[in-house]
């Protein structure tokens, strides 16, 4: 086996130190990536591709990232195909809990695909095929008995462009809990006088405060959410996601459609969220990744994970020449 995590384990590192990894290590990934995934480690073979990207072999230890603490998500040997095209090749990485992990890379490198694998949103795309393993707290999410509803409750997602529902601000926030039966304000329960209006009000306020939106909208909770500005809409989507109380929050370039002020607000918010939640954020903005994340994974062309380490290490002293070229802006 060639993938990073197994190598790390044989090195005797403290990686994957939780009990979550015992038992069901379902290795559905094929060994097909053996020849592609650079375990040959022949060092840097320089050359340049047409896009100005240096040609080199990926070395396994570049993606070894050792950290103390719990593992929230553990990905092993993930391959994704869209039809005949392979979008991800043998990606393995562990996401530490309660921190911000940034995924960066040029467009088309598969970072968004990778993100969508973590809550199985790729299932929506009929041509997508996923091989490999993703474990959430030690439970395999790619198995037949997996409950997508339960999974997505625990792994929330914020999309690239804000997508509030065409409902009131209040209803947007309480949508998830209501659908999960945690809050009941339906007509029937109101008629019977057993609705949870107070619980709902508390929940809405808490989530909007956590998403730093409360002060801007508390006087118009019944207005249609589509009337908010783009930045407000995106924070509303974050609040909506918090209302379900997930463990992990996935964010797919959450600030790419926003102006600088709104972006700054979202960035502050992400840093705050990491105190309670595990945040995985995709961004194409390297400064943003450097500002907000604790560790950074760099994907480069062809759907490969090239390097994964502390954010400081990636931006100051990367192992890979290509990563260095990328973060210094030579291509991308």
């Amino acid at each position: 086996m060639s993938n990073a995590r197994h190598d790390a384990a044989t090195d005797g590192s403290t990686d994957t130190g939780t009990a979550t990894d015992t038992g069901t290590d379902v290795d559905t990934g094929t060994d097909a990536d053996d020849d592609t995934d650079g375990h040959t480690a022949t060092g840097r073979q320089h050359g340049t591709t047409t896009t100005g990207e240096t040609d080199e072999r990926i070395r396994a230890e570049w993606t070894d990232y050792e950290f103390a603490g719990d593992v929230a998500l553990s990905v092993e040997d993930l391959d994704v195909y869209y039809g005949d095209e392979q979008a991800l090749r043998g990606v393995s990485l562990d996401v530490p809990a309660e921190s911000v992990t940034a995924l960066i890379g040029p467009s088309g490198c598969g970072k968004s695909t990778f993100l969508r694998c973590l809550n199985r949103m790729n299932d929506r795309i009929s041509s997508a095929r996923v091989e490999g393993s993703v474990e959430l707290d030690g439970e395999e999410i790619y198995q037949d008995a997996a409950d997508l509803v339960a999974l997505r409750k625990r792994v929330g997602m914020v999309f690239q462009s804000p997508n509030p529902f065409p409902k009131s601000i209040r209803d947007n926030v309480s949508y998830g809990p209501r659908k999960h039966g945690d809050v009941d304000t339906g007509l029937l329960s109101r008629l019977l006088g057993r609705d949870d209006e107070e619980t709902e009000a508390e929940l809405v306020e808490r989530c909007l405060r956590n998403a730093a939106l409360w002060d801007e909208v508390n006087d118009r909770l019944d207005d249609n959410a589509l009337g908010l500005s783009g930045g407000q809409q995106q924070r509303l989507c974050i609040a909506r996601c918090l209302a379900v109380d997930p463990d992990v929050i996935l964010m797919d370039e959450p600030a790419s459609a926003l102006d600088p002020i709104a972006t700054a607000k979202i960035e502050d918010l992400i840093e705050d969220l990491a105190e309670e939640y595990t945040v995985v954020v995709v961004t194409h903005n390297m400064q943003q990744a450097a500002r907000i994340s604790d560790q950074t994974a760099v994907f480069l062309t062809g759907g490969r994970l090239v390097e994964y380490d502390d954010t400081d290490k990636i931006f100051e002293n990367p192992e890979s020449q290509r990563v260095e070229d990328y973060v210094t802006g030579k291509f991308g």
């Binding site: 979550t20 439970e139 339960a150």
Partner: peptide, 14 residues
């Protein structure tokens, strides 16, 4: 850390 004791993502067997 949210514990692994929380409801799992895997449904119970038949």
């Amino acid at each position: 850390m949210t514990g692994a004791t929380e409801t799992g993502v895997v449904r119970g067997r038949a």
